[in-house]
Amino acid sequence: MSQVTMTVNGKTATGDVEGRTLLSQFLRENLNLTGTHVGCDTSQCGACVVHVDGKAVKSCTMLALEAEGADVATIEGQAAPDGTLNTIQQAFQDHHGLQCGFCTPGMVMSAAALLKDNPKPTETEVRDYLEGNICRCTGYHNIVKAIMAASGQDVSSIAAE
């Protein structure tokens, strides 16, 4: 066991982990931040996306020890302290961008990373960026729509409100 310390959602977090402990495991099991989900074991599904030092990372591809000293943001830290949803979260609710909710934390975190780099993405850019996030429920229609809406674009002309 080794000790690891990082900042998670603005708070210092310390824990004892094995060398093989994944960041996703550390978040879920040591910190009880179970909003970060694990949907596969080959780094394909993206349900575990968090931000590490501002970059979107699949937390199942990173060892907890590799995050020593890092600034980690998870889905639990996205809403305001009073519970108000952030712009992306609110857009997902407004546009029915989630159904079972399992892929949703990863989708929201990926969307946040996209909009940080590209504040007004086209539909194609959104779809390309989400290549690493699988959703089985929505057929992606309302996810893409929600992300475009969160970027301030008018999505009213997109079919099927």
């Binding site: 394909q44 779809r127 989400l130 290549e131 996030n133 699988i134 996810i143 729509k145």
Partner: peptide, 20 residues
């Protein structure tokens, strides 16, 4: 036996749908 081999649809493989 994994998402490396079983091709799940991704966002860039489907369009917006017109439903009524």
């Amino acid at each position: 036996a994994s998402y490396m081999d079983y091709a799940m649809p991704r966002a860039d493989e489907v369009p917006f749908y017109a439903v009524d």
